[in-house]
């Protein structure tokens, strides 16, 4: 989790966070109770372009929901330098490694544009999902959907269709 200068501006108003959630694909139309649980674990931050939000191999303490701007998921490839595997657009999530042991980021996340992020505390969310099965029942399908889309996209990228 980045300790970026002036990056924390947490609001006290849960209602505002619920509105932010509803504007995203990931958070829209969850039951009100679930939204309240999530808002309780959330903080909001902004970061300028070029900021490293997560580093590959390090602990992922937060799941980020992009509210605006674009972030890239990168990995360092010997002899090729940094290769961007995927970009994450508003509404989508990054840092879901915070839910999966060993809770370490599988890529380095860098802001390509100034970004506005709603971040959910990883340990807190894990505890909440373990304790609150209703929350788990509505949230996990969203996480799975995000992962499935990414898996499918990666498979097509691997085929390198445009090389032919």
């Amino acid at each position: 989790m980045p300790e970026t200068e002036g990056s924390t501006a947490r609001t006290e108003h849960d209602a505002e966070f619920v509105a932010l959630l509803n504007a995203t694909w990931f958070g829209a139309n969850l039951p009100p109770e679930a939204q309240v649980r999530l808002v309780g674990l959330a903080r909001r931050y902004q970061a300028p372009a070029g900021t490293t939000l997560l580093t590959e191999g390090q602990l992922a303490n937060e799941i980020g929901i992009v509210l605006s701007g674009r972030v890239s998921l990168r990995t360092l490839v010997p002899e090729q330098g940094w290769v961007t595997i995927l970009t994450v657009e508003p509404g989508d999530i990054f840092g879901q490694s915070a839910l999966v042991p060993p809770y370490r980021s599988t890529s380095t996340v860098v802001a390509l544009q100034p970004v506005d992020v709603l971040a959910l505390d990883g340990p807190g969310l894990r505890a909440a999902l373990a304790a609150d099965h209703d929350l788990a029942a509505v949230l996990y399908p969203r996480v799975l959907q995000a992962l499935a889309r990414r898996l499918n996209a990666t498979r097509l990228q691997m085929l390198d269709l445009f090389a032919r």
Partner: peptide, 18 residues
């Protein structure tokens, strides 16, 4: 969008369906 890019590319990376 492009399938792969280096760090200088600020546009989207991912398959066209995304």
């Amino acid at each position: 969008t492009v399938d792969r890019a280096d760090a200088t590319w600020l546009g989207r990376v991912g398959v066209v369906t995304q």
